[in-house]
Simulated scan of single mutants.
Amino acid sequence: MNDRALDRPWMLIAEREIVTKLRDKTFIGSTLVMLVIVMAAVIVPALLAGSGGPDRIAVVDDAGVKVVQQASAIEGGDGYEVTRAADRPAAEQLVTDGDVEGALLPGTDGYVVLGKDRVSSGLESRLREAVVNVGMERNAGAAGLTPTELRAGTKVELELLKPAPLPDVVATFVNIGLALVFYMTALGFGMMIAQSVVQEKESRVVEILAAAVPIRALLWGKVLGNTALALSQIVVIAGASVVGLVATDQLDILKVVAPVAGWFVVFFVLGFVALAGLWAVAGSLATRQEDLGSTTLPGQMILMIPFFFSVFAGSSAKTIASFVPIASSMAMPGRMLTERVPVWQPLVAIVLLLIATVLIVRLGARLYERTLLQTGRRLGYREALAIKPS
């Protein structure tokens, strides 16, 4: 043991936590299972999307029908199905409801390709080419046309009814994925922290450790060691996601998700540190493994309620939740994927989360010091608060 380690005993505890987990077959197995789930979540939707029927395109006249048919005949095209609409409002409704992939409507100088939140580059390019081909065939019927006149009426404009960073279905899927990653990681590592504390109490190892290093160093070592492990697991999962997106040619999704991932890491670390302190306290309140069901219940509720809010709540509720500490770790990154969020909002949410994390960790450290060496019986949170510091 070197002098530097003696000056920073929490480093020894953190190293001990990391080495112990890396040797745990259960931890390694759960990480591999999460990797498989993430890879499946990225690859399977892409395969299903590719195996569906032809995209439906709404049109309002016979000229539009001819263009769509021409687009279907272009080499590399997947084939498109024509859906007739009475007029532009009817076509817009079909697009909004998701009944068609897009609409081809007459414009001031050609056509307008109408989409909801995005139009795939393949569909747009083929419709553009088809419009040019049909227009040139029509204009070539007249003699003596210049190249400009020959291409008259072949301009295509793109309009989006509800511009968004990602398509609704994809954004919702990624939103659930981010919230689920935080929930599962915080819950899994939290239970491991609580179980580790109880095991040390049951085996009396904690008394030896407490005699060698300050109790707060024990807490900080566990929190920082498990935070480093959790963050490393997130990085591995993110790497697997990137591989899946690249393999399925979903780089457009990756370009949108990558900047949000940076924000997610900040929210994750702060939220996890705050919860890790509470999980350690849950372990210190217990005297045996069977006690963890009741002592960890508050931590489970703190995780579960924000998770369901971030996934199933309405827009207004999600906006409020994105500023509430702990809940913001799941709600704010999801909002940044589904809507245009001003940069000041995540910054404010981070400041609020940082303040809450400091307060929660300080409270957790006090409770941990007062209850860690209490081995007679299980303690409640109110009882722990009433214990006078020694």
Rank of each mutant, 00 (worst) to 15 (best):
V100Q: 05
D117T: 15
V100D: 07
P89M: 07
S329M: 12
G364D: 06
V174K: 06
A142K: 14
W220D: 06
E200G: 00
N226M: 12
R84P: 00
Y183I: 01
V361R: 10
Y183R: 00
I37L: 15
V198G: 00
T83A: 14
A317E: 09
N139D: 07
M11V: 15
I360A: 14
G79R: 04
G153P: 05
Q195A: 14
V82N: 04
A230E: 08
L219V: 05
P259M: 06
S203Y: 09
V131G: 03
A85L: 04
E157R: 03
R8S: 11
G244N: 06
R362Q: 14
I355Y: 05
D7W: 09
L219A: 07
V343S: 12
D109F: 01
P325M: 10
D117R: 15
R8W: 14
V260I: 10
G153C: 02
V197A: 08
R56I: 04
R84Q: 12
A313P: 06
D61F: 02
R378M: 14
A71W: 10
M39Y: 11
L353Y: 05
K201N: 07
V65T: 13
G50S: 03
V95Q: 07
D3K: 04
V100G: 04
S125C: 00
L209S: 03
T287Q: 12
M192K: 08
I305S: 08
S125I: 08
A140C: 00
Q69C: 00
A228K: 09
P342Y: 10
D62L: 05
N133G: 14
L354P: 00
I253F: 11
V33M: 15
E202S: 15
N2S: 15
P163A: 04
T20E: 13
L337P: 06
I13N: 01
E157W: 04
Q195Y: 01
P214N: 05
V351G: 13
T20L: 12
P54A: 10
N175T: 13
I13T: 12
V67R: 02
V343T: 12
I234G: 11
V256Y: 05
V235N: 03
K162N: 13
E101T: 14
R23I: 00
P298A: 10
L114A: 02
A274G: 13
M332I: 02
K201P: 06
Q199G: 15
A282L: 05
V42N: 07
F173E: 09
A238C: 09
A5S: 12
A282N: 03
P54R: 02
E149P: 00
A211K: 07
T248Q: 08
L367F: 06
L160Q: 06
K318Y: 00
G110P: 02
F264R: 03
I215E: 14
M136K: 14
L219S: 03
A143P: 09
T375A: 11
I57L: 07
T83Q: 14
V174D: 01
S125P: 00
T148S: 14
F312Q: 12
V205M: 14
T319N: 10
A40M: 13
V95L: 10
A71M: 09
G115H: 05
S390I: 09
V174L: 12
P165I: 05
V281D: 07
F268L: 10
P9Q: 12
G64C: 08
V341Y: 07
F267E: 12
Q233F: 06
I208S: 11
A230D: 06
